[in-house]
Design a protein around this nucleic acid. Structure first.
Lengths: 216, 216, 216, 216
DNA sequence: AATGAATGAGATTTCATTCAT
DNA sequence: CATGAATGAAATCTCATTCAT
């Protein structure tokens, strides 16, 4: 009552925004755990502590909600990538830093991988709107190109390395190991996420990539 | 009811077997396209051209059916792997061959990747029965160990390479690229499955792995 | 168990058919009472004493169910119309008979009118498939044309009467009175369905139509 | 809260009135297009360009809103009827005028018919309050009675015609044709609202009613 | 006077599964 | 071996309505 009349819309805005992010976070967890087909709107509402109806109010339907979750996931990782400042490092250190970052990010955000898997299962139709797709392109590819170029100029790196290919390879080395961890752990009969196994994997990946890049 | 089991066993048997593999193939396609949560028993029956009830007759329920599909998928790839005869090749050629095989197999059997993704999404509980898990272990890891050892002995390969790590890396390089192709193609704005892109990827992967392995 | 194997499919057929007509009848009542928008699938299932799922099994969705109900309603009235044998009567008697039949049919099947209203509310999109629409055309229009022609030839009826217009007029006189009965009864403050009111209306309608048709 | 009611009453009042009629018009369109069961409060708000909450503020609930719409529809047609001045015309001309007016009004206000249909589907419970019902009675019935009496006195019209029956018949002839136009057009395979079809219908209706009324 | 946020009840529809033969 | 009919539980989504300001 008798509240500052200017503050009112902002307050409302904030509540709406908060509800939306709460839903988004809950949906991300649910989609990550159960996949798109296995996710339940009821459970998302429950996780969010909000009325199910509100999800539809803000996100229209399950499909669109998933899309929103996906976009948020991209925004989140891009935000972290920006903080890397790879150009301030020596080329080899920069590449090592990127490998480490990728590994750590996937480890800390396993949901990112499952979300991507879901998106790809559905042929990435969720980013069919090509306008959006480009925004999701990592700035790291550009950066990596610069790092590779500098390494080559300084005689440290081999030439002719496609930064896109390398970026994909670096991601793939972590992704496959972590995303398929349950299967791999079962098959090999050992816990691939044990501390020792983790550091071994990280070393191996650095060895592979730098063994490939560095001129001997 | 209580029919003579001798009367028409062979024909029936054959029919039964055929029905079972028809269902299995239909289920594999459906699970691969839609994921475990998105797959529909109705559609599997339809794809198989058989009555839905029959699926339950042979496979008990959806979960068990998925497990059967998964095991079949492993059997299929193992069957191919056996034909590789890597030990008959020079070490470097053997590694190249393995990379190529992995790439080609994933390309020809994209459903293998989606099935694996589904299995991992559900924490690989479908091969929880650890007896089964080991059977699924690829014989290639042993073979790769021998190849690496021979390469090292002959002074061609670096030493200290864990065959499990390398096996996982080789798989990961193809897997990530192909499994996430829709997303990657959208993001990079070019078709990563175009013929030229394919051969570039294959070269790159060989370069990376052999650049890492070969002593200079 | 040891049933005649030929009888089996028929039995099944019959059950399926019976279920379908039971659903159709229940749906007709519900749609008639509540309109398309107000009808509840739950209530239809309850009225039919059958599982709700079965409705979808046979009729796909609410819209298609309504369409099926509508077509059945047309088939029903056409079936009765065929029994009229108007051509065996004197022209004036034939027209009187038609008026009476229309009146009686609407009285006995008030749901026919509400169904039609619903169909028209939705712009008759339910018989958009024009193939079907023609089948629904009443054979009475043809018959009426013959009756009018004979009446004219015999010097009893005026000439130049369009049978379609007359058919619509005869229907409209009953339809408006009966379909809007609740409103009309409320407005005029008397029960328009009381026995006396009914016979007065029937007389009036005959007077109007024959007063118009007969040469004086 | 507890604002001075005198401060800005006129402007507010006018705004309030305008909002109310905006809502009423929006609701009329929605109810007319979708029926009572199919109408959506959301859509009414959208059509009105006003907040949904406001509808509840002014009209309490959907039911009462429909009632208000219905009453407005009656008020509208009565207002037009008053302008007819049938008593200033010759009896036959007066009847022709009435037929024409009915036809034109339904043509120009198709929503009137759908609203009536909705009201009748729900057994006219919206004008259950009998006080209100009588107000809705058309003054035309009285007028028509006078016209018929004069026609009879002047030897032009037949006697014994119940004005209520005739009024209902005149309405029914237009109503059925127009209200069921989609169905009828589909069945007969021709557009019953084409200009030529319209004038033919109007002639036919006049012919029927006057053919009945006029002494020969 | 006016509004965006939020909700509970309930609607349509879906789905894995079983029945009966 | 094979199947069409049937179902209960639960999923997605909708809707009239209220809250809070």
């Amino acid at each position: 009552m008798a509240r500052d009349p200017i503050a009112v819309p902002e307050e409302r805005m904030r509540d709406a925004d908060r509800s939306q992010s709460t839903i988004l976070a809950a949906a991300r967890d649910e989609f990550a755990e159960c996949g798109l087909g296995g996710a339940r709107m009821d459970r998302i509402a429950e996780r969010a502590g909000l009325n199910k109806r509100l999800i539809y109010y803000y996100f229209e339907d399950k499909e669109k909600l998933f899309q929103a979750v996906l976009e948020q996931a991209y925004r989140d990782i891009r935000e972290e990538e920006i903080k890397l400042h790879l150009l301030e490092l020596e080329p080899a250190a920069a590449v090592r830093r990127l490998i480490e970052f990728t590994w750590d990010y996937y480890l800390a955000h396993p949901e990112f991988m499952t979300l991507l898997n879901s998106a790809n299962l559905h042929k990435a139709r969720h980013l069919a709107g090509s306008e959006r797709a480009r925004e999701l392109n990592s700035p790291l590819v550009e950066t990596l190109a610069a790092v590779l170029e500098r390494g080559r100029r300084e005689g440290k790196f081999r030439g002719g390395v496609d930064p896109v290919q390398l970026y994909v390879s670096i991601a793939g080395l972590s992704y496959f190991y972590l995303s398929n961890n349950p299967t791999l752990s079962a098959i090999f009969g050992r816990d691939l996420l044990a501390p020792k196994a983790r550091s071994e994997r990280l070393s191996h990946m650095s060895d592979v990539i730098l063994g490939y890049l560095l001129r001997s």
